[in-house]
Design a binder for these strands. Structure first.
Length: 419
RNA sequence: GGAGGAUUCGCAUAGCGGCCGAGUGCGCACGCUUGGAAAGCGUGUAUAGGGCAACCUAUCGAGGGUUCAAAUCCCUCAUCCUCCGCCA
């Protein structure tokens, strides 16, 4: 949610931002108009209410026999107050509904354009040249007894899979490596709830344009999270955090559930795009003045992870039209996938500035009072895609796969063998 | 699933339908006292909105209702605690 005061003072900036995202800029004027009406209604209500409060006091002070006369007109006043109150509430809601439609104000450095207009910031590592025909992760997964998509489909439907043997062990190793590096970086490890209430889902902004991709358990009115960003962000909902404790960094490990609506025919083979996967997510509550620096740090930790996995990748600055509504800037890391001859997204980090915190009512307190905090998130490791990248990049001609050095201590060996 | 109890200012508690935005204790901040500290004493100590300001308005788990007036009465819901049942 955008700060209405900021919007009042900088309508042109917000309009330009909406335009840059390819979103409706006329909302800005609608908000301003609605806000004006709201303030008038608020003023009317407050004056009437003040009158009523004052009157009530005179009633209280009056003698018993004088009261009936005093109460004569009081009912009318009470009705007027109630009416004004309803009007005020109505306009407050209308204004809020409009404000909620606005996306976060873009970082001036974010590239403007659609999905294809990202800017490549850097390439790290060199894609390997194979002296044999590389196999894709589905084939390798079968040879290693690591991934079983056929039985996944049988039991759970499309985009489902089993990780077995080496695959399961690889997940544990990745998680353990991720958590131990997060600990070194000062993160608090968290295993959050993955079943959350509407307030948490709504507050983190996943019931807006992303609602189609969220699983909902209607009977109990709860949602399955698509990322632990949701329970991590909502963890401090309605709280005031002390400024000296910032940044507060959490590394959440959880399953993630995604309906993948509207992706029919896209990445249908293998485990690049699935309905359920595990992920370690970094989340930071920080001082708004520190958000940019924190964003750079999250990106660096993501890069460190890819470096440790010895996988070539590139970093892209995601274009305005492809940002989530909460993010004002987003960097994706794309790993080289040999059999696709392409870089594919494996991790992503977003700076949500105070946008998300305002919805969730999370503030920090310093000497000057309380203000909205900044929130940032970034993927440390999303299991299936990392498995794809590791298998495909580190495969040998016979189908065995070399294990990156960083993971060897967690697996007790240096190679995955055929089954 | 059933039966009770609770939810008030950072924490602990008090609170008769009007004098309660709310008392007390602790904590915290500032001041006095002291060679310095502790103790003691004094003062202050919520958030949000509107207004240039004085000030006004809202908020006692949430949402409704009764009333001229609700922390206080009624209804619904949420969370927590205790007991019973059930399952691990």
């Amino acid at each position: 949610m955008i700060d209405i005061k900021y919007l009042r003072e900088n309508p042109e900036v917000v309009k330009a931002s909406q335009k840059g995202r390819g979103e409706d800029e006329s909302i800005v004027d609608k908000v301003l108009a609605s806000d004006e009406l709201r303030r008038v209604a608020l003023d009317i209500f407050e004056k009437l209410r003040a009158e009523q409060n004052l009157f009530s006091k005179t009633v209280a002070a009056a003698k018993a026999e004088e009261r009936p006369a005093l109460l004569e007109n009081a009912k009318e006043l009470a009705t007027a107050v109630k009416e004004a109150d309803n009007k005020r509430t109505e306009l407050e809601e209308a204004t809020k509904n409009l404000v909620m439609q606005l996306s976060n104000v873009l970082d001036p450095n974010a590239p403007i354009g659609g999905e294809a207009d990202f800017v490549v910031l850097e390439h790290i590592g060199t894609p390997r040249t194979f002296d044999f025909e590389p196999k894709d992760h589905v084939e390798l997964g079968k040879l290693l007894g690591a991934i079983d998509t056929e039985r996944g489909a049988k039991v759970a439907g499309s985009r489902s899979y089993y990780l077995t043997g080496s695959g399961a062990l690889l997940e544990f190793a990745l998680i353990n490596y991720a958590i131990s590096s997060a600990l070194k970086a000062g993160f608090t490890p968290v295993i959050p709830p993955v079943l959350v209430n509407p307030a948490a889902m709504e507050g983190t902004g996943f019931l807006g344009q992303a609602a189609e991709n969220v699983y909902r358990i209607e009977k109990d009115d709860v949602y399955l999270v698509g990322t632990s960003e949701v329970p991590l962000a909502a963890m401090h909902m309605d709280e005031v955090l002390p400024a000296e404790k910032l940044p507060m960094r959490y590394a959440g490990y959880s399953s993630c559930f995604r309906r993948e609506a509207g992706t029919y025919g896209k990445d249908t083979r293998g485990i690049i795009r699935v309905h359920q996967f595990d992920k370690v997510e970094m989340f930071s509550f920080c001082h708004p003045d520190q958000a940019k620096e924190e964003h750079a740090r999250l990106l660096q930790w993501e890069k460190d992870f890819l470096d440790a996995m010895e996988i070539p990748y590139r970093v892209i600055d995601v274009a305005s039209g492809d940002l989530g509504s909460s993010a004002n800037r987003k960097f994706d890391i794309e790993a080289w996938i040999p059999t696709q001859n392409a870089y594919r997204e494996v991790t992503s980090t977003s700076n949500c500035t105070e946008f998300q915190a305002r919805r969730l009512n999370i503030r920090y307190r310093d000497a000057d009072g309380t203000k909205a905090i900044a929130t940032l998130n970034g993927t440390l490791v999303a299991i299936p895609r990392m498995i794809v990248a590791i298998l495909e990049n580190h495969q040998n001609a016979d189908g065995t796969v070399n294990i990156p050095k960083a993971l060897q201590p967690f697996l007790g060996r240096d190679r995955f063998e055929l089954v």
